[in-house]
Simulated scan of single mutants.
Amino acid sequence: MEKMLQVEIVTPDRLVLDEKADYVSATGIGGEFGVLPNHVPYLTALKIGSLYYKANGKNHYAFISGGFAEVSDNKVTILAESAELVEQIDLERAKKAKERAEKRLASKEDYDQSRAEIALQRAIIRISLKSSNGL
């Protein structure tokens, strides 16, 4: 019986993560889901959110900006529009993005409201991940 999962996070630009893990959790469109070794095949669209995985007794986190997750043969593949490991998140940049999005949402100008809401959501999740993991 397999005791580890292979976890890959791939964006159009790069391979963000390729590592063995004991457990993986992410935010699908139907809610949070978790994967242990020998999980049944599974496919879901992802919401903007976080990915958590446990490897070598340590907890690791990543930001995922939508995409898809596939679970098959003890491998979790995340195909994301964009992704960052928590260590790669620039906290100051995320705070500035949050401020810009809030200003756009408060403005009466003709901004694309849904784009501003998505930008705000991404910034809030990045800030939360970075702040809660003390990095």
Rank of each mutant, 00 (worst) to 15 (best):
A101P: 02
N59M: 09
L120H: 05
Y53V: 00
V35F: 03
N74I: 11
Y111W: 15
V71A: 02
P41T: 05
V16A: 00
K75R: 15
R93Y: 12
Q113D: 13
Y52Q: 09
E19W: 05
I9A: 07
F68Y: 12
V35R: 02
T44W: 00
I29R: 10
G30S: 14
I89D: 00
K103F: 08
F68N: 08
Y53S: 00
L105G: 10
Q113A: 08
S72F: 10
V86Y: 07
G30F: 13
L120E: 00
L79V: 08
A62P: 04
D112L: 15
S50L: 11
E32A: 13
F68C: 06
E8F: 13
G66M: 03
K20E: 13
M4E: 14
L85F: 06
L46H: 03
A62N: 02
F33T: 04
L91G: 06
L36H: 10
N59H: 08
L5D: 02
I118F: 08
K54E: 14
Y61A: 00
F33R: 02
E117R: 11
S50V: 06
P41N: 09
A55R: 10
L43Q: 10
V86P: 01
T27N: 11
G67A: 08
I29L: 06
Y52C: 15
K108R: 13
A21M: 03
V24H: 05
A119K: 01
H60I: 00
F63H: 05
G30A: 12
F63P: 01
L46V: 03
V86I: 06
N59R: 13
I78H: 04
P41S: 07
D18W: 06
N38D: 14
E19N: 08
L17H: 02
L105W: 07
V24Q: 01
S65M: 10
L85W: 01
Y52M: 12
Q6E: 13
A101W: 10
D90L: 04
A94R: 04
G66K: 03
Q113I: 13
F33K: 01
V16S: 03
D22G: 15
A97I: 06
G49F: 00
E19C: 09
K47F: 15
I89Q: 00
V71L: 05
R93E: 15
L51K: 00
G67D: 04
S25I: 09
A106E: 11
E84L: 06
I64M: 07
I29T: 09
Y52P: 10
R14E: 09
V71N: 03
N38K: 11
K98F: 14
A97P: 00
F63W: 01
Q113F: 15
S107G: 06
Y42E: 04
A26D: 04
I48V: 14
D73C: 11
L91Y: 10
R100S: 15
N74W: 13
R14Q: 11
I29Y: 10
R104E: 15
S65G: 15
E84P: 03
R115E: 11
D18R: 12
E117N: 04
